[in-house]
């Protein structure tokens, strides 16, 4: 079981690196969908006891929302807003990829600085989570399009999710579903906002959103 969890965690790291280097928005969204499915698998992988109904519902919810609903929502937002299918970064792809790769040793170093943890989970789990969070922040600040910022937000959220399923297993079912619902509504509302931005400005470049300042 441990081996498979490690394989999945490494795949998550690779999907995050792909997000920093890919230039096509459609592919980025598909990678994000893959990551959603992987998160569901991790949730199963870290369970030490028998799978309970509660875990299965959570996994099904995660896979359905992150793997299928979000990609559809984002694709729809792109189609309706007639956005060009390019990512358009402030920071180039090569540099983004380099920063993304350097974030990995940094995440491992960060994990080493934390107090020792003997929770019986894969040692890769915490670095993967930190890496995803760093990639998420990188995508949010270095990409021009509103859609890519939402992708960054999702990567960040996924990183936190990995951390949560691995180490913090005491959230009650109601709260876990609430968290999932919140993220769902957040992306839904952001999708609507993207649609309005494209109609108002004829594009969704957030660097044009700069009238309000001192």
């Amino acid at each position: 079981m441990q081996v498979w969890t490690d394989v999945i965690l490494i795949t998550v790291v690779l999907t995050n690196l792909a997000l920093t280097g890919l230039s096509s928005l459609g592919t980025c969204i598909r990678v994000m969908a893959l990551q959603g499915v992987l998160l569901g698998l991790i949730t199963i992988g870290v369970q030490r006891e028998q799978l309970s109904l509660h875990v299965l519902v959570l996994v099904a919810g995660t896979v359905a929302i992150k793997g299928f609903v979000f990609p559809r929502l984002l694709k729809r937002a792109i189609r309706e807003a007639a956005i060009r299918q390019e990512v358009e970064p402030f920071v180039g792809f090569a540099s983004s990829l380099l920063i993304g790769s350097l974030a990995l040793p940094f995440a491992i170093w960060l994990t080493g600085r934390l107090p020792h943890l003997d929770a019986g989970v894969s040692p890769l789990l915490v670095p993967t989570a930190f890496h995803a969070i760093l990639i998420g922040l990188l995508l949010i600040v270095s990409r021009r399009k509103a859609v890519t910022q939402v992708l960054g937000y999702l990567a960040l959220e996924n990183g936190i999710f990995v951390f949560g399923v691995g180490l913090a297993r005491q959230a009650t079912f109601l709260v876990e579903m609430g968290i999932l619902l919140d993220v769902f509504v957040a992306v839904f509302v952001m999708g609507i906002a993207i649609f309005h931005i494209s109609r108002e400005f004829d594009h969704i470049d957030t660097d044009q959103l700069s009238q309000l300042k001192e």
Partner: peptide, 9 residues
Amino acid sequence: LEATWKYLL
């Protein structure tokens, strides 16, 4: 709209 987007994100 700009204010809303910043607030949301």
